[in-house]
Design a protein around this nucleic acid. Sequence first.
DNA 1: ACTCCATTTTGTAACCTTTACAATCTGATA
DNA 2: TATCAGATTGTAAAGGTTACAAAATGGAGT
Lengths: 137, 137
Amino acid sequence: MEKYLKILREHGIKVTPQRLEILRFLDTHHTHPTADEIYHELRKKNPALSKTTIYNTIQSLTDHGLLHTLNFRTHEARFDSVINHHHHLLCSECGKVIDIEVECPFTKEKIAGGHRIDEVHGYFRGVCKDCLGIGGK
Amino acid sequence: MEKYLKILREHGIKVTPQRLEILRFLDTHHTHPTADEIYHELRKKNPALSKTTIYNTIQSLTDHGLLHTLNFRTHEARFDSVINHHHHLLCSECGKVIDIEVECPFTKEKIAGGHRIDEVHGYFRGVCKDCLGIGGK
DNA sequence: ACTCCATTTTGTAACCTTTACAATCTGATA
DNA sequence: TATCAGATTGTAAAGGTTACAAAATGGAGT
Ligand SMILES: [Mn+2]
Ligand SMILES: [Mn+2]
Ligand SMILES: [Zn+2]
Ligand SMILES: [Zn+2]
């Protein structure tokens, strides 16, 4: 927990119990949860938690570069505290969003087709390793 | 217009004036419009047009592989009738979504990290060529 | 051309995530 | 301990999408 306290302080984000819990949840669950999933999970320990606080904290962490947003589909933002660059797979069988470590040539490029590139997001759709294994190939 | 009639018939989609207009709009405007943009544009000619028809037709065209959905951000799907594979840039200055023709190694791969890949979406954020030119580099 | 009927279109309301806002609470500082 | 800017909470509003039932329509068969 000391770890998250330090992270918040280093980024000049005022420390609150809610922020510590949200940050800890994101750091210990790399499942790319939705705001609603974070909310319901942390509510078990803190029933007074507000969903607005989830969104406020997400915004704050994002502003400080501690969080990335994944937009696989409309009406469902997912969040990722692993900020080193990687791509993602949405499994059409189990619905999980899975990290894909890739050698993507565009992460190094600053320009493509004359346009300036600031961020690269690689979204794959398919079937994850586990689901392939269960149902046969 | 004969062109769009033919496309619908070839895919076994019942021909209606609304579907012809929507298909034509998408084919002649590669601006990656939102449902709302399609709706307001086509309403100029057909004020009785319903937004539900826009969504129904989008679904139908998508089911037949004639349309792709871009999810740059939640709460705003954009649509693309150019179905050969390419990546996209969202310009943070002008908001336009621009095609990026790329040599992406993942479009040829069927497997990555043991997972089966069915679709590859490359989303870039940055500043487009035009906006770079206007304000200086 | 007419009839028929499955399909489509339309209009409205519901749905769901996200955002806005005001009142209350909290915690760092003095 | 008193203060007060900032954080949290609860509620409502916003905005895009989907569900649904009634009305309209396209096209096959006559
Ligand atoms: Mn990830
Ligand atoms: Mn495109
Ligand atoms: Zn899976
Ligand atoms: Zn631009």
